[in-house]
Nucleic acid binder design. Structure first.
Lengths: 141, 141
DNA sequence: AATAGTGCTTGCGAATTACAAGTGCAAATA
DNA sequence: TATTTGCACTTGTAATTCGCAAGCACTATT
């Protein structure tokens, strides 16, 4: 894995140095919407290659956005969880969901959830944040 | 320019197919925060290559996120503007600004603006949206 | 007619990606 | 005990994309 060099000190540029690629935020989506937290779950959904998934998970670990621990229910497996810094990314992911649901033809957004996101963004987001906080804080799924 | 193939119908995946890369949202940032709307302005800030900038602007045009017209103040130059769909991306960009300002060491966020974004996100965002709407709707800078 | 400005396009070496296959280790099964 | 299975990667390789430098086409100015 190669660390991308800092292009400038702008907060947006620095953020995109970390997650500005095709896959990183999709991994976050899997955490948030599908509760996929094991390597072999994450590898399935949009058929990311294993080397890319490994690279992105390492980058997220290095940037303290996810943490990794042995799964207490299956000790030969690792469980990945969002840190506080990772949980802080949830509003970005939901804003992207909202934009895609409203602006891209042929998307498969659930219409009830889409309406909720459009009319009660803050409520929806904080409910998801609360749920993730409780499930990801104790290394337990 | 090659169109990225659709990985799935998920709104987030579809959105990232359009702007999930290192540069696209930075171009949007230049529109929003610096009011850079000409090719030779956009090319300067984080030293993007001209072929990449041309490619990304074309992708944004194809996806109806920006529009392009002859600059009425300089007829040998083109003026790029955000469409409604592009203006709809502003909350995403500001969420990313917020995350970077709060979570990345050494970022150069303006502390007053950062506080404003943290405490009055919706107000800050809608003010920026209103400003962009008036300046980008009439092909005039 | 010559120069400058603007918005690209082209060529090419370097870096990154996707796909397939293989590895190392722990736990379950025979 | 030996073997298989599952999990989390790593490695190899070909294809794609990127970044840098240079060049090109068009318009406006001198």
């Amino acid at each position: 894995m190669k660390q991308i060099e800092r292009r400038s000190d702008c907060p947006i540029s620095l953020s995109l140095d970390i997650f500005g690629d095709k896959w990183t935020l999709l991994i976050l989506r899997d955490f948030i919407f599908f509760d996929n937290r094991h390597f072999n779950e994450l590898v399935t959904i949009e058929k990311i290659s294993t080397n890319i998934l490994a690279d992105r998970l390492n980058r997220l670990l290095e940037n303290d956005i996810v943490k990794k621990e042995v799964d207490r229910n299956n000790k030969s497996s690792y469980l990945y969880s969002l840190t506080e810094k990772g949980i802080d990314l949830i509003p970005i992911v939901i804003e992207i969901y909202k934009w895609g649901a409203n602006n891209i033809d042929g998307n498969n957004a659930n219409s009830e959830f889409k309406n909720e996101v459009n009319s009660n963004f803050n409520k929806v987001t904080s409910e998801i944040v609360d749920r993730i906080k409780t499930t990801h804080n104790n290394g337990y799924k």
